[in-house]
Design a protein around this nucleic acid. Structure first.
Lengths: 230, 230
DNA sequence: CAAAAATATTAAGAAAATCTTAAGATTTTT
DNA sequence: AAAAATCTTAAGATTTTCTTAATATTTTTG
């Protein structure tokens, strides 16, 4: 099971990290948030396929957050809760959650439930909505097909190249430093990453730009990083 | 929430009836069966929208029954069980159940979970188009006949080969990693699955492609996985 | 304007992913 | 119980991708 992005929202760092370990062990990508407000932000910045949401959180609780998410997106939500009160579960499910797991829980059960939901969503063709094709001035990105096109012509990118483009396009207009790019694409701290990233940028430009020397899409912001214009 | 048929399968009459009362109270239609074998019969005779399935049953247990149902239908299955052992839950979910509720349970929670599943299914018109013939550039798949054709000529695929093609065709355009293919087709975690899948891909290409070396349908996306173009 | 810093370019070797073939194991059918 | 069909494993070939290093260019700064 690969290339699904799971957003884990919990105010306790240990829980977030523990869950992350199990998810990563299944080959799933993990993005974390500390509370509901941050979760909504991350949801806008990334392609998220499933949310694990703690109920008890400062600022905005899980139920409120579920309601807000449901206003926009229809992706699966699994609520985590210390309350094992039946009425809480029922309320959570009524409000639009897809599953409800009470703490303490067996991480393996949580994983099994995550996978069950992902399977469902995929077979229901549900990700077509949340994996929308992005089109920026003729440059398009289709997350489900992992395909990028320029004026309709498909561009053959390598996995790393694709990930870089995906990062820049799903956050179009925002500048990413070389280190930030390295960390988010490679998922590891980037020490001497400058050149590595530069080479990949070059390759990408060769593929998506008419004139790689005068890039129209993938622009450098001197001293700061790279971006793709909105 | 009306006009949906729920199949309740449990060997204890009292439980069947108790569940039925709550379901009917929600305006849902209830059909009952005493065991897995009878359940499969009822499934063939009726339009069923969701199954509530007890694990412990004579003749054929809930897990076996789930597997049999999944061979044919993709409707939501909620397993009921006296066992609260985590491993049982995990197993049930792995095998294709959508939810797992342990006895004793609050009937209202069960209802909430039923409604949660139905909501998901309904939003996508799942109960209609899932048996339609898919035609992608001359490659067709008939899910009900389990048949694949290329330009009208039937192709004889083995069960595993068929499942792979079905996965790729029902999600045409989407890229599946080798692991994802393994997990979805074999229903078990894929550790050293690369080669196994590769060999099957080869066999499939031999059967559906004119020139297996230059596949027209079953394409590789390097470093990511395989797909069949929309 | 010259020096420094940041980014760009190229090519080559290393690493990783996929493909292929064939043999043996398993399952299903006859 | 034998035969046929199917599946898995292994090993090596092939193809593609990644990183590194050396050097060049552009932009900024003093």
């Amino acid at each position: 099971m690969a290339d699904y992005n799971i957003l884990v929202v919990d105010d306790e760092k240990e829980i977030r990290e523990a869950i992350a370990i199990y998810l990563k062990n299944e080959g799933l990508n993990v993005i974390t948030a500390e509370d509901g407000v941050e979760a909504i932000e991350k949801l806008n910045e990334n392609t998220i396929h499933l949310i694990i949401l703690d109920v008890m959180m400062p600022r905005q609780d899980g139920i409120q957050t579920t309601l807000k998410i449901r206003e926009k997106k229809n992706i699966p939500i699994i609520i985590l809760s210390a309350k094992s009160e039946d009425m809480d579960k029922i309320h959570g499910l009524q409000v639009g959650a897809d599953d409800y797991v009470t703490k303490p829980f067996n991480p393996l059960e949580l994983i099994a439930r995550v996978k069950s939901q992902l399977r469902r969503y995929l077979t229901l063709g549900m990700y077509e909505g949340c994996e929308k094709v992005i089109n920026l001035n003729g440059l398009t990105l289709d997350p489900s097909a992992k395909e990028v096109t320029v004026n309709g012509d498909p561009v053959k990118l390598t996995p790393i190249e694709y990930k870089i483009v995906e990062l820049l396009m799903t956050n179009a207009g925002r500048v990413f430093s070389i280190n930030e790019i390295y960390e988010r694409v490679w998922n590891e701290p980037g020490y001497n990453a400058e050149n590595t990233v530069a080479v990949h940028i070059r390759k990408i430009r060769e593929k998506i730009e008419i004139d790689p020397k005068n890039p129209r899409y993938l622009k450098v912001v001197w001293g700061i990083g790279y971006k793709i214009e909105k």
